[in-house]
Design a protein around this nucleic acid. Structure first.
Length: 153
DNA sequence: GCCAACGTTGGC
DNA sequence: GCCAACGTTGGC
């Protein structure tokens, strides 16, 4: 099966690429958006390549690479009452939220800021560059992926 | 800190 | 099933 390519956003204040480098593998918990969940549950496969995007920081941009390290499984925080990700409508028999594990691959030698992405004609169709897009997980084409890796190297 | 864009909720 | 109100995201 062919690999898929993705971009996943996180706020480095919460969890950035350096945190991932430290732990190696991390469950991508806390996604509470159905489209993003569907990507993790239905389309992301172990071995897929992922761009790690830092949002809500100065400047926002792609910080490095990771890979999908597991199949989908229920996000444990949805069952924890004390968690801000607790979802009272989710049950263990029929969990609402799924996630995958991600594995650290590398920190880009050159951080690729959002402004630089905007300047690339090849990347103009990327979801991340469309106005108003807030989706935290988006599919990326191989051409786009390879181009951004080149910019970061 | 502002605010535009978007997703979700809930009353009707 | 509509849609107003509300909450969140994320660039600036």
């Amino acid at each position: 099966m062919a690999k898929n390519y993705w971009l996943m956003k996180s706020e480095p204040d919460e969890f950035g690429i350096l945190d991932l480098k430290e732990v190696g593998v991390e469950p991508w918990s806390g996604v509470r958006n159905y489209q993003a969940r569907n990507f993790m549950r239905d389309e992301m496969k172990k071995g897929d390549e992922v761009l790690f995007y830092h949002s809500n920081t100065k400047p926002p941009g792609v910080a490095g690479l990771m890979t999908v390290a597991s199949g989908p499984y229920p996000d444990p925080f949805q069952f924890k009452k004390s968690s801000k990700y607790f979802d009272p409508k989710s049950t263990k028999d029929n969990p609402r939220w799924f996630l995958i594990d991600v594995k650290f691959k590398k920190v880009f030698k050159n951080y690729v800021p959002l402004d630089a992405l905007k300047e690339e004609k090849k990347l103009k169709d990327m979801k991340i560059l469309q106005k108003g897009n807030r989706l935290s997980i988006t599919p990326v084409s191989k051409v786009e992926f390879d181009h951004i890796v080149k910019m970061g190297s």
